[in-house]
Amino acid sequence: MRKHLKILLLFIVCLCSLVQLSAAGYVPATVPNPKGPTQNGWISDPAGYLSAAQAAQITTACTNLKNHVDVEVAVVMLPDYDRQRYDRLTFCQELFNLWGIGGRERNTGVLVFFADGPIGRRDIRIHTGGGMEGLLTDYACSEMIDDAYEYLSAGEYGNGVLKIMEGLCRRLLTPEAQAELTLGWAPKHFDEEGFVAQMVFLTFLFVAVWLLCYAYYRARKCKKCGVATMKQTGTKIIKQATYKSCGKEELTFTCACCGHTIIKKHIIPRLTRTTGYTGSGHSGRGFSGGGFSGGSWGGGHSFGGGAGRGF
């Protein structure tokens, strides 16, 4: 037993080290998401390329873009990523759609991606969501990278990204861009509540039908021979029900199979005068959001737009 345990332990250790080995660089799923239950930021910078001032400036720009033109910008700066499994494009594409940057309806999201590495293998990419392709053409993205290239190639990554943010704001915060981006800006949400309600209703329906069937079966089951053939054969009223008090009756059940007879006492409900229905409807909803300090991306999708460069 102990030996087995040892082998098992060894195996687990091996497995862990394998995982460690394969985690040589980031993959989209392991990039820290700036949006979550407890945080609501725009920047994912686990290695700290940005100074506090730079991060604050980027955050302001992102917030502005979100508030004025409903564009979500994610800034991701990584020391490295799994370059054997991903190239710049596929990494950005997967990360973009994994997080769902930009609104679900209009896909107005932008991912600014930087990955460090040896000189010549560093990556910069501006990845655009489906709804941004009109305003931020690949060529426009390429121009923005050109503008930031001076800083980036000198190793001033924070300033480079700031330059890109500047370019984004310059292009997106114009009245024309605003008009285009906010055209038909009517946030709609997938009717999750309706879907859940439907499911709950169906489940209840099934349970109810099942219970009814079961109750019916139980009522008809003979206690003596076990066959479900009990049937009501007689009624004897002991006391009539009035408007003031309940009545009482005796019901006779006989089993068609073995002739076993039982008598059940039954209370007759008090008589009621028919009046107009005045039942009050149900109102109010069961769920409400509590104290919610986190955030999430809007669920946007990219079709691979944007431009990138290795340097």
Binding site: L89, T137, D138, Y139, S302, F303, G304, G305, A307
Partner: peptide, 17 residues
């Protein structure tokens, strides 16, 4: 240059699509 940048972008979209 501009057109070939665009072409590159479109090739990317093709790959992803």
């Amino acid at each position: 240059g501009k057109l070939s940048d665009q072409l590159e972008g479109i090739q990317n979209r093709v790959t992803i699509a």
